[in-house]
Amino acid sequence: MIVVDSITKSFSGNVVLDNFSSKFEPGRINLIIGRSGSGKTMTIKCMLGLHQVDCGSIYFDNRNFISLSERDRKKIRKEIGMVFQGSALFDSMTVSENVMFPLTMSSKMTKDKMIERVNFCLNRVDLKNVNDLYPSELSGGMQKRVAIARAIALNPKYLFCDEPNSGLDPATAKVIDNLLKEITYEYKITTVINTHDMNSVVDIGDRIIYIEEGRKKWEGDKKTFLETDDKELHYFKSFSKLFTK
């Protein structure tokens, strides 16, 4: 479980994340939704330690990430998988090398075991015969799948995804959503996904957090989300045809 306790982040006095608190439970898909620029990505990046928070605490299974030394943080980071908005695959490496990279850096597996694991992860995301291709030779959807394969290579306990559907057609977006859902339930991962795609909310969201201007405005499960008349949420939902029919 990940517990975020009152984190605040500002740049030159401009507060981008204001006193954000929440709990993210294992085996569930936790969605952070909100408009562009509302602070979704900043929330995830602060949770991952990519940005130093001004105050507050982040606990990964009772381990306070903020107060740990860099060496101890590294142990937690080995338990984290991340899918970036633009996939962030290493351009100079092939698909195989990309997926193998975390294994090379953080595991003591033999080369054969690594190759076996790479093939397993690529099969898991339904990618075949792409091992020797470079990221630039893949479509956006395939790149996202390679990014997911790389993120699960080390069997993570926590999976973070920053807008995994952005730039994808609805069909491919659904494939990615289903994949994330299956992986989360199969491996009991604590999954945190940033999105503004309402289809994702309906399809895969177990718990939804709505943020606006860096502040948490609403939090609850999918059923409540679909039924609520909350004014803050209503404005956001009104832009989706799913909720205006």
Binding site: L50, R73, F84, D91, S106
Partner: peptide, 17 residues
């Protein structure tokens, strides 16, 4: 610089590198 803007450097940091 390209690695920075395409978040590849962030990906390395997330992996604890």
């Amino acid at each position: 610089g390209t690695m920075r803007v395409t978040e590849q450097i962030d990906a390395l940091e997330v992996m604890g590198i």
